[in-house]
Design a protein around this nucleic acid. Structure first.
Lengths: 148, 148
DNA sequence: TCTAAATAAGATATGAATTATCTTATATTA
DNA sequence: TAATATAAGATAATTCATATCTTATTTAGA
């Protein structure tokens, strides 16, 4: 019921990138250093992000990563699904035939319901939301209050 | 971001128990058979449920499990936390000092927010909700619709 | 043009957690 | 008291998350 370290690192790494001037080519080395994460692991995470269309990668000296999609349009849900795979909660929430109960799964609709709520919440935040200055950061905070 | 097989089995097992007449002593063998799950695994799961105060266990012939708390008062969130451990989403959502970012974690408030939403949803369902007859099952269905 | 250096890509290894099974202890009843 | 039915506890296997190591690619300078 928790996100993986890899997803956490991915989000923090993308937020770091979004804080740089638009178009900056970022090195894994710097991304890792500024997010307190192991560079070798971050490297593999960014490989996966590059295979999806989220970021571009350039090999060789002066290579690195840039955004391929505006950080405003990258939601937390997208990042988690790229790194951790689809958010199902329970396998029966998506594929009813995967339910253990033959023909009649008691809990199917609950998982469909809760999944919808969770995905909506995860889609309500973008990477850009965390790259703003402190004034804007407080707006994020007050946005969170409306749910409490 | 998904619940474990163990939590899924636990929920289905408790729902099966809740469908029996109140006070019935249920055997793991029957619980497993009626939920399409491996009896040996279900046995270990019910050990854990018994260590928490959710169910009582009785050893020996005619032993088995009964509810120690009314199924109406056992929420899905409780079951998941007993089996899978605390629902954090991200470790920084609960313990801010566990954030990678030293002194200033960009995403902390997001995780606090989303966790609150998820836990509210998981607490809105009890084991008893799934032990009702078909007429009531449809009420659960329409309840789910209000979120869509 | 060749060599060195800096980078990402890809392959491999480690370790922890999940999932499952096997063995032991306990209680009942005939 | 012996046999049986049950849960409890110990152990094993598998999978997945996490991390590291090796290779390929590009650039720049000699």
């Amino acid at each position: 019921m928790n996100i993986s370290r890899a997803s956490d690192y991915a989000i923090r790494g993308l937020v770091y990138m979004a804080k740089q001037p638009a178009g900056t080519v970022c090195f894994v080395k710097d991304i890792a250093k500024n997010t307190n994460s192991p560079a070798s692991f971050m490297s593999k995470i960014f490989q996966t992000l590059a295979k999806s269309a989220i970021v571009n990668s350039f090999t060789g000296t002066k290579g690195g990563f840039t955004f391929n999609i505006q950080p405003e349009n990258i939601t937390i849900k997208q990042v988690i699904e790229i790194i951790d795979g689809p958010i199902l909660l329970n396998r029966c929430a998506v594929n009813k035939s995967a339910c253990n109960e033959i023909g009649n799964c008691d809990v199917h609709y609950m998982w469909v319901d809760i999944r919808k709520i969770l995905i909506k919440a995860l889609n309500s935040y973008s990477i850009a939301d965390f790259a703003k200055d402190k004034k804007n950061s407080k707006e994020v905070l007050s946005q969170s209050m409306q749910y409490s």
